[in-house]
Design a protein around this nucleic acid. Structure first.
Lengths: 204, 204
DNA sequence: CCGCTAGATTGCCTTGAAGGCAACTTTGCC
DNA sequence: GGCAAAGTTGCCTTCAAGGCAATCTAGCGG
């Protein structure tokens, strides 16, 4: 995790390149559509070679997922700082919300075309995997620490982490499927509150 | 979904071919290891051309995931047949367990080499893509039907489906990480029972 | 029973992804 | 200023994805 605390110029430049590649990928997606650009285009826009793109990201989808994944990693870190007496699901919800707020999500109102591309993106299995990669394990660690369980031996922390990611995906999915009118933080708080109650079926 | 009810000989042959390809892929994985065979090998073993393999599966991992995905589809169908007064999480747990039982999972005790290959398989992003494909939506539909919610407008069914898949993944993950001594059905019942209680942290 | 046609299989081909290797360049430190 | 380590790049091979057109076959109507 040399991700945080960029010590020297070397580290900072790597971070810059990674971010530039990720941003370039996002831009290209909105400009041309998800299927109308290749990794080489992304590399060109970020001013590096295709081979260097490969050194940073395993796929186009990894580049597109970078921001979201980075937020989840920060959420895992934040989870460790939540008060110990706070209910677990509340702590998780707040830890997920804070990085969204920091990044200013949602960035104003996206255009219809942007929403359309985001939907397409979220619908691809490749993206869903890219979103889970390298993030679940961080969450597992943080949850294990908080709950005093063993991430290797116990099922519990991995279960909670997977459920958390599943819930987050559902919320993000809904955000792009329906009109993103509701504040995401509010929806997240409701969802994790329901989760703590066992997700009872509505009315019934 | 012409998957079920193979009417004519044509349909049945398609099903047979699909299953033969999937079985061939599994065999080759255990014989040679995940990285030591290509789609052409699978096609050859199943007695069809590579191009035909592509007509059935988008990737090697799709072929490997076929059985698991098929079970989840059957679980979605079973969920619709569970008694309406059964608690939702119980219904979901039982709907997940039944296809496992039908398929005789676990198939006796896997060898250490087999466990090793399964772990490698489950760790690959490509496999996770294949597992995510075409399964969540079936569950969303079934859950929406059962709970009287709208899969498009309501967050609820997608949330429950994603949480369900997350929990299932955690259990499968644990199954291959630790010694698969515990009966999976029992673990699943416990997990979904805990889920109905909001997954309280242990002791604490 | 026979031929007809939709659907299945196949080969060929183009594009793109993944990643090993070695040459070259830059950073950070002595 | 120079040196070692790390980053960047080009080149290459292998594999995946899937369009297209030719061929074959199951299952139907005559």
């Amino acid at each position: 995790m040399p991700e945080e605390a960029p010590s020297g110029l070397r580290e900072r430049k790597k971070l810059d390149t990674r971010k530039a590649l990720s941003d370039a990928a996002l831009e290209l997606m909105f400009e041309r559509g998800l299927d109308n650009f290749v990794r080489e285009d992304v590399a060109a826009r970020a001013g590096v070679s295709l081979r260097t793109f490969s050194n940073y990201f395993a796929s186009k989808y990894d580049a597109l997922a970078y921001r979201v994944n980075h937020r989840i990693r920060r959420s895992a870190a934040l989870l460790r700082t939540r008060p110990a007496d706070e209910p677990m699901w509340t702590a998780i919800a707040e830890a997920l919300i804070e990085p969204l707020r920091e990044d200013g999500v949602p960035f104003g109102r996206p255009t219809d075309e942007q929403i359309h591309e985001i939907r397409k993106l979220n619908a691809t299995p490749e993206m869903q995997v890219a979103l889970a990669r390298n993030t679940v394990d961080d969450l597992v660690e943080a949850i294990a620490e908080r709950t005093g369980t063993d991430p290797e031996a116990d099922l519990y922390p991995r279960l909670v982490a997977n459920v958390t990611i599943g819930a987050l995906n559902a919320v993000l999915n809904r955000y792009v499927r329906t009109d993103p009118a509701l504040a995401m933080s509010r929806v997240l708080r409701e969802v994790f509150d329901d989760l703590s109650k066992g997700l009872p079926p509505p009315r019934a």
